[in-house]
Design a protein around this nucleic acid. Structure first.
Lengths: 151, 151
DNA sequence: ATGACATTGTTGCGCGGTCAACTATTCCCG
DNA sequence: CGGGAATAGTTGACCGCGCAACAATGTCAT
């Protein structure tokens, strides 16, 4: 068993700042969306994914993959969004097992109403604190990490 | 109402890479700890906080603040860790409302056993993909973000 | 064509988390 | 001092999520 290479002070500081900053950031974004628009961050992201998909619809499995959550999670989330009137289920005609989640007009309107506040919060809490160089480094580093973790 | 400044392409890419990379990273760390040591990432972090505290003990509220979770969450987590034998509750002598959570010897041993694998995973999934410059930029940026979000 | 195997979406179950309410205690100011 | 306000920790109700099991459907080699 190889000797453990512990984190040095700089690495420790990086790790803590990143973890804690991220936790605070996500929490702040969640609260902003919840109080200003009555949507959770998770649900908001599902609406975004649907809005970007061709035909404003996505297979359940694709929605699960794209949102980095489990299929059961998507099933329940879509049920929730369906009850809210923002999404409807549409049967898949080329695969009788399949289901599409499709953004409704109300869902699109909800998203349009919520987006400015959300983007404002993302700027206020993140991008306003990043120099161009920092942003570029973060983009490149996390793109690499993401590729490593999901090849 | 001011015009919304939407994210440009680079900002979009940064935001997505960061969010998705972070999700994958946390998930990977959680799985590593769970399968190799039978501890969740959240519980592991509580043990770390206690191990770093003077006397290996912390007031419940301080533990809640330091772990960025709610007090009820800490109450339940400590109960869980207590049942596992890794933590014990100790009454506070200068504040009869107060409670300390204190790391037991078994808890310290558990932590010592789990730490190398965890640090290895943090290196493998994060620091191994970061240049010195990137690490420094991330440290500075997130330190600033954290300070802004929790003054 | 057919039978083994894979995939899709849903569900029951349990876990872990927050919020609000509660009790006990401490703080603070008149 | 005394009494209202703040604080500490716990608990109950509830919610969202993942895992494993499931039925339904699709895929593919033979």
């Amino acid at each position: 068993m190889a000797e453990t290479r512990w984190l040095d002070d700089d690495e420790q500081a990086t790790w803590r700042a990143y973890l804690e900053g991220t936790r605070l950031l996500i929490h702040a974004l969640d609260r902003q969306l919840e109080t200003d628009s009555g949507v959770s961050f998770a649900d908001y992201e599902l609406l975004v994914l649907l809005s970007e998909a061709p035909g404003h619809r996505l297979r359940m499995r694709d929605l699960a993959d794209a949102s980095f959550t489990s299929r059961s999670g998507v099933t329940r989330a879509v049920t929730r969004l369906e009850d809210a009137g923002w999404v409807r289920r549409v049967e898949c005609d080329d695969d009788r097992r399949g289901m599409h989640a499709e953004l409704t007009e109300a869902g699109a309107a909800k998203l349009a109403a919520a987006a400015p506040g959300h983007v404002g919060a993302v700027r206020e809490h993140m991008f306003d604190h990043l120099s161009q160089a920092e942003q570029a480094h973060i983009r490149e580093a996390y793109t690499r990490m993401r590729a490593h973790l999901r090849p």
